[in-house]
């Protein structure tokens, strides 16, 4: 337990000093601010312009447009930034050899994985929380009638998906060696999930639904009951990925 806290602390220091915290916090802060503002401003800017002599008529933006922007930013750029920031947390240490000294001191390998997962989830949660908080505040300020359905659950789904991605990164890094092993394989995993979502029957179980139904939840066209399976399966897959990566990492030649 002590070793776990020590190594997690080291991970947090690393995030701070290798600019990971700076990047993720500031990028997510920007998304939180920009999303409602963009939703509010875009129609006004567009309607002020004339396109081939035609005035563009755009309806008054609503709170759903703001959240639409928010989830669009976070599931695209936000996820990409998350992938880039955490993609090397294990791969880099493996290929550089910085873990050798530490493991030679008797630190169990599963502790390394658990610490890395914990620290990454902490930074992801902080960044995501910041984005969601700022977005909420600005939306409340800029829009009237801000009532939406399932806001908490919708936010929770994307958060859970982020945690799942971090576990996938760790698993990928134990499978594929090299500096970008974790990054490439995780990106591949996301692509596979996107492709699988084409089949309508799979949508119910696919983790990626947690990052695609967020606005539908707010609209009320999807309910939390619709995503129960996705939540359960994503939780199980997260735990499974961690377990499997621990087994593979244990066998890895260092």
């Amino acid at each position: 337990m002590r070793a776990f806290f020590v190594f997690t602390k080291k991970e947090l220091v690393e995030q701070l000093r290798t600019y990971k915290s700076l990047i993720l916090l500031s990028v997510f802060f920007l998304f939180g601010m920009m999303s409602p503002l963009l939703a509010k401003l875009l129609p006004e800017i567009l309607s002020g312009m004339e396109l081939q002599g035609m005035k563009i008529e755009i309806p008054e933006p609503t709170v759903l447009d703001a959240y639409g922007q928010f989830f669009k930013n976070l599931t695209q750029m936000g996820l990409l930034a998350t992938l880039l920031v955490f993609g090397g947390i294990l791969s880099n240490e493996m290929s550089k050899g910085t873990l050798i000294n530490i493991l030679a001191k008797g630190l169990p390998r599963y502790t390394v994985l658990l610490s890395k997962f914990t620290a990454a989830v902490l930074l992801w949660s902080a960044s995501y929380g910041l984005a969601a908080g700022v977005n909420y505040g600005y939306t409340e300020y800029l829009f009237e009638n801000t009532a939406v359905h399932n806001l908490g659950f919708s936010l929770f789904c994307l958060w859970l998906f982020g945690c799942f991605i971090i576990a996938v990164i760790l698993l990928s890094s134990t499978i594929l060696s090299g500096n970008f092993g974790g990054l490439i394989l995780s990106a591949g995993a996301i692509v596979v999930m996107l492709i699988l979502n084409i089949f309508p029957g799979l949508e119910k179980y696919n983790p990626i639904t947690l990052a695609s139904k967020n606005v539908a939840l707010l609209l009320g066209t999807a309910t939390s009951a619709d995503l129960t399976w996705n939540v359960v399966i994503t939780c199980l897959l997260t735990l499974g990925s961690l377990l499997l990566s621990a087994i593979l990492f244990h066998r890895k030649r260092i």
Binding site: T18, Y19, K20, L22, I23, V27, A81, L84, V85, G87, G88, F180, L183
Partner: peptide
């Protein structure tokens, strides 16, 4: 982002 994550 790209610089700090993979370029640095």
């Amino acid at each position: 982002i790209v610089y700090f994550t993979i370029g640095r």
